[in-house]
């Protein structure tokens, strides 16, 4: 059964973006436009996956989207507080979680989140309550006084994601969040992403992965980044699969999903 949905305003516009590092062009003419997906009776955001072979520019694209690397050409727009006035993304507007789930090594989990909240929009008087609420909700209350070096991988993952949520708000970019995780941790991260996705209508999660099955299971849109031809070794979007229009988003994983996985793998291998 295909789920009904409507598209709202643009939540992310990557407009013809190119990034060159030194003399080497890494990505070129990347364009992505994401809209607020509205479903009656559901409070949910958008989940976008970027897949592609190693060295095709996924991490560079993510750094551009998060404002950590300025595009050489093009622009990246996100909504601002004022309606119909999008702004160019800058450092800190979009949360970024790398595959190592990096945290400050000298701060306890509580202090990591407190610092992140101070950088975000939480009023000072509400920070303690908000941090404690999230620690409790995400099962980190007992580990709140631990340092990252003494935490399990799962605890670090949750703390890294939470600190970005507290600081950046709705946008979250995760670079290979499933890399090197065991089956249990993969399930944990999936649950976390769904939790974040359901937290706000404008929540927008963009993640990269080499696990195409996972991308198809979680995302409602998938971009394939790759080289457009053998002669042109610069990353760009070579295909996009909108699982909403295909009727595969928010559905139980079935045969049609498996067929889509095959199609995506073909596109990846060809690029």
């Amino acid at each position: 059964m295909k789920h009904e949905y409507k598209l709202g305003g643009t939540v992310l516009l990557v407009d013809n973006v190119s990034v060159t590092i030194g003399d080497k062009p890494i990505i070129e003419n990347v364009t992505m436009e994401e809209h607020d997906v509205i479903r009656d009776g559901h409070n949910q955001g958008q989940m976008i996956a970027v897949v592609g072979r190693s060295g095709r520019g996924k991490s560079t694209l993510f750094k551009a989207i998060t404002g950590l690397r300025k595009p050489t050409k093009g622009r990246i727009l996100i909504p601002s507080d004022e309606a119909n006035k999008p702004i160019e993304v800058k450092e800190g507007d979009v949360g970024f979680v790398d595959q190592k789930y990096t945290l400050f090594r000298h701060l306890t989990l509580y202090n990591q989140l407190k610092l992140a909240a101070q950088k975000g929009s939480t009023p000072e008087s509400e920070i303690h309550g908000r941090v404690m609420e999230l620690l409790s909700k995400w099962g980190l209350e007992k580990a709140k006084d631990q340092y990252p070096g003494h935490c399990s991988g799962g605890q670090r993952q949750r703390a890294a994601i939470l600190s970005q949520i507290l600081s950046s708000g709705y946008f979250l970019v995760l670079d290979e969040p499933f890399s090197g995780l065991d089956v249990g941790n993969v399930e944990d991260v999936k649950s976390m992403l769904r939790l974040v996705n359901a937290s706000h209508e404008l929540s927008t999660i963009i993640f990269s992965t080499h696990d195409i099955e996972l991308a198809v299971e979680l995302a409602d849109k998938i971009y394939v980044i790759g080289f457009p031809s053998e002669d042109k070794q610069i990353g760009t979007i070579v295909s996009a699969f909108d699982l909403k229009t295909l009727g595969l988003a928010w559905q139980s994983y079935g045969k049609e999903h498996i067929d889509l996985v095959h199609d995506i793998k073909k596109k990846i291998l060809a690029s």
Binding site: L68, E91, G92, T102, K119, G120, A160, Q164, S167, S168
Partner: peptide
Amino acid sequence: IPEEEFDHARSLKM
């Protein structure tokens, strides 16, 4: 120091 640590701090609006 891994680049990720700088990116983490910058992504927190520091």
